[in-house]
Design a protein around this nucleic acid. Sequence first.
DNA 1: AAAATATCGATAAAAAATTACCGATATTAA
DNA 2: TTAATATCGGTAATTTTTTATCGATATTTT
Lengths: 223, 223
Amino acid sequence: MNPKAISKQTLLRLPSYLSYLKSLPKDECEYVSATTIATALGLNDVQVRKDLACVSKKGRPKLGYVAEELIRDIESFLGYDALNDAIIVGAGRLGGALLSYEGFKEYGLNIVAAFDADESKVGTEICGKKIFPLSKMKELCQRMKVRIGIITVPAHSAQKACDMLVDSGIYAIWNFAPVHLKVPDNILVQQENMAASLAVLSAHLAEAIKNNEIGKGDEENDK
Amino acid sequence: MNPKAISKQTLLRLPSYLSYLKSLPKDECEYVSATTIATALGLNDVQVRKDLACVSKKGRPKLGYVAEELIRDIESFLGYDALNDAIIVGAGRLGGALLSYEGFKEYGLNIVAAFDADESKVGTEICGKKIFPLSKMKELCQRMKVRIGIITVPAHSAQKACDMLVDSGIYAIWNFAPVHLKVPDNILVQQENMAASLAVLSAHLAEAIKNNEIGKGDEENDK
DNA sequence: AAAATATCGATAAAAAATTACCGATATTAA
DNA sequence: TTAATATCGGTAATTTTTTATCGATATTTT
């Protein structure tokens, strides 16, 4: 109905376009063509054109798209221009790393606080962000109208953290624990699966070794 | 030709199966059916069955698969049983978090050292792993036959880090910097794209807000 | 001013991934 | 011993995603 029928694959590629576009020298490249982007990113040019058509205006034949406009349109489509407040559950190593990562602001994500079950962490700060006890979660979320929760607790307590977030009125969850979370239908879960990435790497490597391809072959195109 | 024609999607799902299988109480569940796994993970049962067929033996009608066998077979397929040494380039927040994460051993990944351009970090340790200057990379990689490099430097120096890794004889690169790396054909790059995950989350959230769906709708099945 | 060219957008074809269907089989229950 | 049932594995149909092709258009060059 609405033109929201954007494929997940496209959605996943948009950030790449964005980072590529941002890496261009502003003054030199007013226009960028789909072909250029595709070549730089190792993609198909038609694919890039189709992706861009979903989120931005028409390009101009012979020239391409206005780079700055593309950046604006992608950012706006992804909601990066509207800062979303988020909280983190689990202030361990990973949680701490995310807490202290300034770059999320660029993606419209603003982490306002962290929660942890560990008494000894409660009350301390990481990069100016306070760590609260789990018992304060609901109150803080509702008071600050926080909509995004990030889970960085160990696998065995992830579902509990998730339930608490849902109870606190969170709408979207970014889950770093290697667990499939059970949530009500109206809650969005985005799984950050580092194990999956690692699996791809590991499997390819294992195969390359098996086939003695290492150091010569190319395992991408194998026909 | 060889039965290696496993799809990338399947590969990405295997770790989920693994973590689910491992979460089962060992004594109670000798057998697991594809249907059970599918339901638990919110997938289609045929899909699960097809995925499993790629990496394990046949299941038994009416019962399903032997859980322990499945675990073993998936782990072995993914190469988790053979420990791979890896190094990290970039000992900042994220690099530190990865360095100190013990869980990678389960995935067959053993991070042996880190490298950083920052003189003040060189010589220090994180979780018993030493931080070396970039100049030592090649020597160490070759001496220890390290095959995997992990990039956790800022975007603007990622390509340089990548080139150094390639020069050091690395075969596979796990890249956390939001940049498309240029590498020779025989080098495998696995992009860890947190921005992409975030994009999915952010876009869905933005849309839900726009459509006033929050708190009632379900945006998964929408027809 | 006209010709050459690079790129666009749309449609069509191809490839890949997901899902549906169905007969076969082994276990459990009657 | 027989019937009922849950699940498997394979084939087929569907859906989604990617890629190829082609006419149109605006810019640059001649």
